[in-house]
């Protein structure tokens, strides 16, 4: 298998979560292909399964894959542990990054880079690399000595996610609602960071978003609409413009993949 083009292929993916009433299916057959250098947007209303898709790709234990496949360059992603997926080149920028008290950002970044690259980065070049990436995201150098996400503002957390993406250089980056909770300035900076990674052409980006706002900064080549656990519409950037005007109503009310009763509250 040649590795010239990194490709994430999702085929007929079915995913459930455990609830008090037993397992509930959230993804009902998702098909999606993301190649290196491409930018895809997945849009959809709350509860359509967007976040479930992103966590399933990353391997969160809360989500159970009940059918279908995910492969990266032909390798079965579903048999890999969470950490192995990251080392294989999958990155998830989380909507709600987790606080890890007492673990400094610098120690965390270096541990991650060491794991993903397979060897500890040379200290001198590493320091320069981190410094440049932080400057690009307009992050104070003092940031590196704080605990991971500890007391970070919403904007700081998202910048930190994008910083990690820039340093880990994934083949496929899933950005889960990275635009949510950002003011205009922070959105501009974060978008700039994403754009810089994209411009290198080495990463396939899957941008998951509820709103079209971030798409003014980052232009996807492909737009997918998700509703009730399936991709229900696909198109180019023009589809985002349509959604901006008309919203998701036509996908959730009586459409061909309208949400069955009770599926609306899960995100």
């Amino acid at each position: 298998m040649t590795a010239a083009v990194s490709t994430l292929e999702i085929r007929n993916l079915h995913v459930s979560v455990e609830t008090e009433e037993g397992p509930r299916e959230i993804l009902r057959g998702v098909d999606l292909t993301v190649r290196k250098g491409e930018t895809h947007a997945i849009m959809g209303p709350n509860g359509s399964g967007k976040s479930t898709l992103s966590y399933s790709i990353a391997g969160h234990p809360k989500y159970t894959v009940t059918g279908g496949s995910i492969t990266l360059d032909g390798e079965d992603v579903l048999t890999m542990g969470v950490d192995a997926r990251a080392r294989a080149g999958i990155f998830l920028a989380m909507q709600y990054p987790v606080e890890i008290p007492g673990v400094s950002v610098s120690n965390f970044l270096r541990s991650s880079a060491t794991a993903v690259r397979g060897e500890a980065p040379k200290l001198r070049t590493w320091v320069k690399e981190v410094k440049a990436s932080m400057e690009a995201l307009e992050m104070d150098p003092a940031f590196a000595e704080r605990g991971v996400n500890e007391g970070f503002s919403g904007g700081e957390k998202k910048r930190h996610e994008i910083l990690q993406m820039a340093l880990l250089k994934p083949k496929i980056a899933v950005l889960d609602e990275t635009d949510s909770g950002l003011d205009v300035d922070a959105l501009r900076i974060v978008s700039g960071g994403i754009e810089a990674v994209r411009a290198k052409g080495e990463t396939g980006i899957l941008l998951i978003t509820h709103y079209t706002r971030i798409l003014r900064y980052i232009k996807p080549e492909f737009v997918h609409v998700m509703a009730a656990g399936r991709i229900v519409d696909e198109g180019g950037p023009e589809l985002a413009a349509v959604l901006e005007d008309s919203g998701y109503d036509r996908y959730v009310k009586g459409g061909e993949a309208a949400a069955p009763a009770g599926a609306g509250a899960v995100s």
Partner: peptide, 20 residues
Amino acid sequence: FYLQSRGIPPAEARRLVVHG
């Protein structure tokens, strides 16, 4: 999960959390 999603193996992730 967060640490592992950055490539850090589970045992190392636990070590980081306890040290922190």
